[in-house]
Design a protein around this nucleic acid. Structure first.
Length: 121
DNA sequence: AGAATGACAGGAA
DNA sequence: GTTCCTGCCATTC
């Protein structure tokens, strides 16, 4: 049989891969929209990640661990969603300062700070 | 088909 | 350090 053929490196749709990458972010850790996009082989599609995230109603999806590239929460400061995200992050021990994640001085890269040396970003 | 919009990113001021 | 402006992609009017 030729069943062993698995030509496509990406098993699912872009949406599937993106959601999977988001689910993979461990508790107490965060990642950026652009970083997620890169991890699933979609460089430059940060806004697509945002759209998928907002469109998904999946429960248990760690949407609150996804931040902007500068570590700032994407929602308008003070909005209900913003406050919700702040609460969830703090509950996981993420240090925030004015709705912005405090990043270790050593790593200026948000994703590297938390995801560690997984792969080059 | 062209214009506007959005849970973005990066560089300039 | 911050704010502002421009570039990008995909979707919706």
């Amino acid at each position: 049989m030729l069943t062993r053929i698995m030509p496509s490196p990406e098993p699912a749709t872009a949406e599937q891969r993106i959601l999977a990458a988001i689910r993979a972010v461990p508790q107490g850790q965060v990642a950026s929209y652009g970083g997620i996009a890169r991890r699933v082989g979609l460089p430059g599609r940060a806004r697509l990640v945002a759209r998928i995230l907002g469109g998904s109603d999946e429960t248990g999806l760690p949407w609150h661990r996804i931040l902007r590239s500068d570590g700032r929460i994407a929602f308008p400061a003070g909005s209900p969603q913003w406050q919700e995200q702040v609460c969830r992050l703090q509950a996981e021990g993420v240090q925030l300062r004015n709705g912005r994640v405090r990043i270790a001085a050593e790593t200026d890269n948000l994703d590297a700070a938390v995801w560690g040396p997984l792969d080059p970003l």
